[in-house]
Amino acid sequence: MPNQPDSNNWPRWFDPRSRSLGTFGYILNRVTALGLTLYLMMHLVALGQLARGADAYDGFIALVKNPLFKLGELLVIAAGVIHGLNGIRIALNSFGIGVRRQKSTFITLMLIAVFIIVFFAFKMFSEG
């Protein structure tokens, strides 16, 4: 990759080596955004099944009850929670609120995210 600014350098956005906590938040927001965008596209394809009749839709619903799909759904919840909470931090910081406490805010919000994700995991997988 070139040393000077270049749009082809974007893979470096995801390189956490020798970086601080702020970049971990930066990387998390990008990864979760890409994941949620991918999910949105898959969701639209799934909704498209409705147009193919009741049997096709029922078959699709039976498929997504597979535990692997449940894990995928949990990842969507995790991405939404992480992106949303981290986004609140960035929005507040962007207007000069809590900038000097951005690290502790990030850690607190991510702990809340972990708690929410574990709660959903428990609910989803314990109900069979």
Partner: peptide, 20 residues
Amino acid sequence: SAYECTEVCPSGVDPAWRIM
């Protein structure tokens, strides 16, 4: 908002705070 500027600044300028 990656805050790397403030992390590496050797002079305590705190560019991230100034930007916000």
